[in-house]
């Protein structure tokens, strides 16, 4: 390609040495797809457990509250890499998942443990998002519903949650943005996401810096517009509430 010459005289350690791109570009593309899949699937998987955790956290029963509180505390107070390693080698050391490749590039024997670990981690954070969302719904809503004779469960389902979920959608989208970044840690366990692609390219081409610079650029170009878009949606939603 015409711009390959640009890199001819650059040292392998140069910040701007991107001479690997023509050959290894597709590698990065696959990495992007893997990363996005990892982030989106793990947050989506986290939603239901997070909802259960949040409702447990708001329970009147101390034991129920305690279980959920302990789960959230553990996952929020230990590093993701440690959790990932324990789940990968511990839980999935005993369960064998067949090496089946889906979508052409996702080996489920690695993908599933990674997604499960990220989802378990994410559910602790999403639970706190939901808890905040539920608490932000005016108590008068609950009172009105209960005064009509609806049970606390029906009140939660029909009145509180629909309003809470609308409020937490932006925070949930932000959690996906966070996961896009956090999932880079999965490269440590051989999941072929974006960071893994960068590492592989760096070690094959002996270009030590450029691949990581490209990875950083890609992460930025995904997350920055995404978080700006979320902000805009949030602003619009707030305006809608005021009517």
């Amino acid at each position: 390609m015409w711009w390959s010459n640009l890199f001819k005289d650059l040292s392998p350690a140069s910040f701007f040495n991107f001479s690997f791109l023509p050959k290894y570009g597709p590698y990065f593309l696959k990495g992007i797809a893997y990363t996005l899949l990892l982030a989106v699937v793990s947050v989506l998987l986290a939603v239901i457990p997070a909802l259960v955790l949040a409702i447990m956290r708001l329970s009147k029963k101390k034991l129920v509250r305690g279980i959920s509180g302990a789960y959230i505390a553990i996952f929020r107070s230990t590093p993701l890499l440690v959790q990932l390693s324990i789940i990968y080698f511990g839980l999935f050391g005993t369960i064998t998942i067949p090496r089946i490749t889906i979508l052409g590039f996702v080996d489920i024997s690695r993908f599933i443990p990674g997604v499960v670990a990220l989802a378990l981690n994410s559910s602790a954070y999403v639970a706190e998002i939901f808890r905040g969302g539920i608490l932000a719904v005016d108590i008068g809503q609950t009172e009105a519903s209960r005064s009509l004779g609806l049970s606390s469960w029906a009140t939660m389902k029909l009145v509180v949650l629909p309003q809470a979920i609308k409020n937490v959608l932006p925070a949930l989208a932000n959690e996906i943005v966070t996961m896009v970044k956090e999932s880079s840690i999965c490269s440590m366990l051989g999941m072929v996401e974006l960071m893994f692609a960068a590492k592989t390219v760096a070690s094959t081409t002996y270009i030590s810096l450029g691949p990581y610079v490209i990875a950083a650029l890609i992460y930025f170009c995904i997350n920055y517009p995404a978080s700006k878009a979320i902000e805009a949606i949030e602003r619009r939603m707030r305006r809608g509430d005021k009517r």
Binding site: D138, G140, E143, A144, S147, V159, P162, Q163, K166
Partner: peptide
């Protein structure tokens, strides 16, 4: 029951 702040379900 009728409340001071109405408490209609906004959704």
């Amino acid at each position: 029951m009728v409340f001071q702040h109405f408490n209609l379900f906004p959704h």
